[in-house]
């Protein structure tokens, strides 16, 4: 008997069984790789008490696309794990910042490389690791450090997730993924770290065997569900970001 298909007809069907209280990782960095369509479907579904893992919560640029900040505004989020709770440039305003600063939402601020490595470690079966990053800063206060070969390192734990939302350029029916240019970013790491990886795919999904195995960026063993992004305006596509006047 053929295995069940990984291809889902629409975003709502792909998300329907995600329970309240889930830990969800969102791929993407400044546009490329960001799962806008899955995020929009999650907003519509209204799933609550989420822990969201992502580099940023979004919302600093126009046009504003579905992002974690909107899930927060929609009352769906208990905690965010990210590398920015505020923007680097004071002229950029993240909608999330006021929710965090006022205590409405919890956040764990993690250096970007530590965030990536904690996800990778979760997927790779490494429970924790030592890193020189953040040693001597307020992030390391009261935490376990160790001197190895004369240098001080901070202990960081793996970050497993229930679900990963990622966006890929191409996929085959086996769930193998390819990214284009800067789309890759956190997406492969989140796919590895999650029990359930759901992918929005830009190009028509290809039959298994269509990819040269040497050119697969994420093997299908890490991918459970695929949905093809419909053409705009039904489907959401990355747009050029408009810089704020400064």
């Amino acid at each position: 008997m053929a295995p069940p298909s990984k291809i889902y007809p629409d975003f709502a069907a792909a998300l329907a069984d995600i329970p309240d209280g889930s830990i969800i990782a969102f791929g993407g960095f400044a546009g490329p790789g960001t799962p806008y369509n899955l995020t929009r479907a999650l907003l519509a579904q209204g799933t609550k008490r989420l822990t969201c893992i992502a580099n940023t919560t979004g919302g600093a640029h126009q046009p504003r696309m579905p992002d974690i900040g909107m899930l927060v505004e929609n009352g769906q989020v208990a905690k965010v794990i990210c590398s920015f709770t505020a923007a680097t440039r004071p002229t950029d305003v993240l909608p999330f910042t006021k929710y965090y600063e006022s205590g409405e939402v919890e956040a764990e601020l993690v250096p970007q490389g530590t965030l990536a490595e904690r996800l990778r470690a979760a997927g790779a079966g490494v429970p924790a690791f030592y890193t020189p990053t953040a040693v001597g800063t307020e992030l390391a206060a009261g935490r376990e450090t160790r001197v190895i070969h004369g240098r001080e390192y901070l202990l960081e734990y793996a970050l497993p997730c229930d679900v990963a939302f990622v966006r890929a350029w191409r996929a085959d029916t086996a769930g193998n993924l390819q990214f284009r240019l800067a789309q890759r970013n956190f997406c492969p790491l989140m796919a590895m770290a999650a029990k359930l990886t759901i992918v929005e795919v830009e190009e028509p999904i290809l039959p298994a065997g269509a990819f040269d195995p040497d050119q697969v960026h994420v093997p299908g063993i890490f991918v459970q569900r695929l949905i093809q992004v419909p053409p705009a305006p039904e489907g959401l596509w990355t747009m050029r970001r408009q810089e704020r006047a400064r």
């Binding site: 970007q112 350029w169 800067a182 890759r184 956190f186 050029r240």
Partner: peptide, 27 residues
């Protein structure tokens, strides 16, 4: 190319010899 940004989110170009890795390899 909307698939290509630098760390500041600017749409940059690639020079000959460019390469792309994921975030764990980048860090």
């Amino acid at each position: 190319d909307l698939h290509l940004v630098n760390a500041g989110g600017q749409n940059v170009s690639l020079l000959p010899g460019a390469a792309i890795v994921h975030h764990a390899d980048s860090f």
